[in-house]
């Protein structure tokens, strides 16, 4: 464990806490893409298949449980909660996310560390996570204005993978035979997808104005 990875995990945790705060405090999920939340639940469920077979550390196990539980809780809340689900932007959240699942799975079959059930699903979860934010970014683009908590949620979600890139650089220089090129390339793509969001987020922060995404 190094400071970059720990900062990344904490940033990821903060993004989840901000999302939960937004939904429970405002009793609204407007501006949140249910499809992105579903993709993230799938990412965690397929990535942590080794939850009960490989024990890494208490920290690792607890964080995996928190990520799985929180992503499922958000999906259930957005689907079931009678108050929250009324605020879901159903007609704006129309990204065909099944294509993302299919593309990631096909790529995972072709490019993986080892052609085993667990490794294929691990690669699948890595590729899917890189694309999972797309429905959310499209939804924000369509809805134009971004409320503060949603903006902070997306910002922290993007920032966490940027910390992981620093972590991979650090591990590359400090550990022999460290090669996580599947996660590295995918993490780079993931972070680049946030680039324009980060730009408009920074502009709104500099002008102390409400965040506007160009229509």
């Amino acid at each position: 464990m190094n400071i970059f990875r720990f900062a990344g995990d904490m940033t990821h945790l903060i993004s989840i806490l901000v999302l939960l705060l937004k939904i429970y405090a405002t009793k609204s999920c407007s501006g949140i893409s249910l499809k992105t939340q579903e993709l993230y639940a799938l990412v965690f469920l397929t990535r942590y298949l080794d939850l009960f077979t490989d024990f890494i550390s208490v920290y690792n196990t607890i964080m995996k449980l928190v990520f799985i539980a929180s992503s499922l809780a958000v999906v259930c809340c957005m689907r079931m909660h009678r108050v929250v689900r009324r605020s879901y932007d159903k007609d704006l959240d129309t990204f065909r996310h099944y294509f993302l699942i299919l593309a990631s799975f096909v790529l995972a079959l072709l490019v993986n560390e080892k052609f085993t059930f667990q490794e294929i699903f691990w690669a699948f979860s890595i590729y899917l996570e890189a694309l999972a934010i797309l429905p959310q970014l499209v939804l924000l683009q369509r809805s134009g204005n971004v409320d503060n908590l949603t903006g902070q949620y997306v910002f922290f979600l993007g920032a966490y993978r940027a910390f992981y890139i620093l972590n991979w650089i650090y591990r590359y220089f400090t550990e022999q035979h460290f090669s996580r090129w599947i996660a590295c390339v995918s993490g780079l793509v993931q972070t680049v997808l946030y680039a324009d969001f980060f730009y408009y987020y920074f502009i709104s922060w500099k002008n102390n104005a409400k965040m506007q995404l160009p229509a």
Binding site: R5, D9, H12, R47, D50, D54, I56, N60, M63, K64, F67, E113, K114, T116, E119, W122, Y164, N167, R180, A183
Partner: peptide
């Protein structure tokens, strides 16, 4: 043998 390395990252 290339033991399948554990994924120690989240």
């Amino acid at each position: 043998t290339e033991a399948v390395r554990k994924h120690d990252e989240l």
